[in-house]
């Protein structure tokens, strides 16, 4: 995979490469989590989470970083449904099941490379 959209966690054995129409990019996912993560990704797209959190959950001036996930699903769900600044997503538009899939996707996003490995960020 040359252009990693998602450096997605590959905890399992085989690695699948899937094309995502929405992004024109490829993502590697584990076989086990394949379906959940792929569905979660699609929901992350269609529910527009990427608008403010970025396609990789990296965050922006419009929405904080949400990946890699630091908290359990219950906390994640509470933050999406009862927010301060973000639009609240009610179960009427985003079911419990869908949110769990989004969570699975967000969870699958890996840590980026360490600072030492990114010469472009050496500002000294």
């Amino acid at each position: 995979m040359s252009v990693g959209l998602g450096t997605i966690r590959s905890a399992g054995r085989g690695v699948l490469v899937i094309s995502l129409w929405a992004l024109g990019a490829t993502v590697a996912v584990t076989q086990e989590s394949d379906d959940d993560v792929r569905e979660g990704r699609a929901l992350y797209d269609s529910h527009q989470c990427w608008q403010c959190h970025g396609y990789e959950g990296q965050g922006s001036v419009a929405g904080v970083r949400i990946a890699p996930t630091l908290y359990p699903y219950e906390a994640f769900a509470r933050l999406v449904r009862h927010t301060n600044l973000m639009p609240a997503y009610s179960p009427n538009v985003l079911s419990e099941e869908q949110l769990r899939l989004i969570y699975a996707f967000v969870q699958s996003i890996l840590e980026p490379p360490p600072l030492e490995d990114i010469p472009e960020l050496d500002f000294e």
Binding site: G4, L5, T7, G54, Y55, Q58, G59, S60, P114, E120
Partner: peptide, 18 residues
């Protein structure tokens, strides 16, 4: 700031920090 700039580093489309 430097730490945050790493997130999405290899993303396509290109991240704004990159």
């Amino acid at each position: 700031a430097l730490d945050e700039a790493r997130y999405g580093w290899n993303a396509s489309p290109v991240s704004t920090s990159r």
